[in-house]
Design a protein around this nucleic acid. Structure first.
Lengths: 160, 160
DNA sequence: CCTTGATAGTCAATTTTGGTGACCATTTGC
DNA sequence: GCAAATGGTCACCAAAATTGACTATCAAGG
């Protein structure tokens, strides 16, 4: 990251700024809607929850966090009543992290807030431009880093 | 953040992913070039350094970190020989954080690495598309959050 | 089968970070 | 020249990430 004011802020600085701003607004709005007991860091788990459950290790991969961190996050969310751990029928080692009723409500609320944030940006940029921006953002997020020699195809590798 | 795999990953998830990937690649490359003693978190300061110096409080604003954090970051970077504190001639309370020779080298190296990362994305997306993407990214990063009533103009308000 | 190696998850200990409140020096506005 | 705001630091505390080890299970191969 190298955003000298002389230079334009670089990709990393911009990403960090957007992340901070989105996080702040999302969790402020969630708190106003009654979800005031979840720490922003729990977003790493909540953002990747699925109604039908997801494995902790997959959460770790998707969020880029270590599995110990995900474990403690899930602990917290479980105590708060947002998720519960259920055994994974397909693998007796694994446990599925499933949202509870309250978890589903939170997911819906967060999705609505994120929609409104993105709609605001879409209005500012123009619908078409924002759609193009979002698509480009996805591409950039999915482009594999560096690949010194034998690049693997950019296929569905990234689970999330 | 609400990126159910069913849904597309949202703005926050994408920003987080890009930030992580950029950080990892940048600091790996810096380490390979001999700058292996700087922690990624110091990027919050390094990214906003200026050759002619910048105040700690401005670093705090630009990076979104508390001034105590910036202080300790600057301490570390000072011990490592990347920056030095000089009194600000314009305000005897303030100190300017100025890059040393080594700091300037680091800034140049980081800028080059970031350029190569962005060039890779530009190749993947197309030069035109990437330029449009980058412009949109800046707009999104600068759009003020929410503004329930009397919006202030989106002028140069954001210091960084 | 029975071994070998990888994967899923947890526990515990350590280290890093981040956050808080108080505090001094200086500047700014009245 | 006094009060309030700003720049910066100190000392302490809480939260968080990283590491390493360990159990249970799965998947391959012999």
């Amino acid at each position: 990251m190298t955003g000298h004011p002389a230079t334009q802020p670089d990709l990393g600085v911009l990403a960090a700024r957007i992340l901070m701003s989105v996080q702040r607004e999302l969790f402020t709005a969630l708190a106003e809607q009654g979800f005031d007991d979840i720490a922003p860091r729990a977003g790493a788990v909540l953002a990747h929850l699925r109604a039908d459950g997801i494995r902790a290790s997959e959460l770790a991969r998707a969020s880029g966090q270590h599995k110990q961190v995900v474990g403690s996050l899930v602990d917290d969310l479980e105590h708060l009543g947002y998720v519960e751990r259920r055994p994974d029928p397909a693998d007796r080692r694994a446990k599925l992290v499933c949202p509870t009723e309250r978890g589903l409500l939170q997911m819906a609320a967060a999705a609505a807030i994120m929609r409104s944030i993105e709609e605001r940006h879409a209005r500012a940029l123009g619908e078409r431009e924002y759609a193009a921006f979002k698509a480009a953002l996805r591409s950039v997020a999915e482009l594999p880093p560096e690949s010194p020699h034998g690049t693997r195809p950019p296929g569905p590798g990234d689970g999330a």
